[in-house]
Amino acid sequence: MTTAASNLNFIIAAYAVTWIVILGYLWRLVRKGGRARADYERMAQQRSGEKSQ
């Protein structure tokens, strides 16, 4: 393997790791956010239901 070719592997690895971390964390936030929003809305409705009775 020539140096240039093996260097290309390191460059690709660096950009791949960057995207895995960015998109991975983004995915985690979106999922967690959806769950937190749903829990919040459910609890808020339950509370307003209790109070109006």
């Binding site: 960015i22 979106v30 929003r37 609890m43 808020a44 509370r47 209790e50």
Partner: peptide, 30 residues
Amino acid sequence: VMIYFIRKRYEIARLERATEHMAEAAAMGG
């Protein structure tokens, strides 16, 4: 990206905390 990440993470933390507060209040007798 960093600004989005921090804002979104903060939103989640606020939602979770608000849900906890409501659950506590409910347990205390509404």
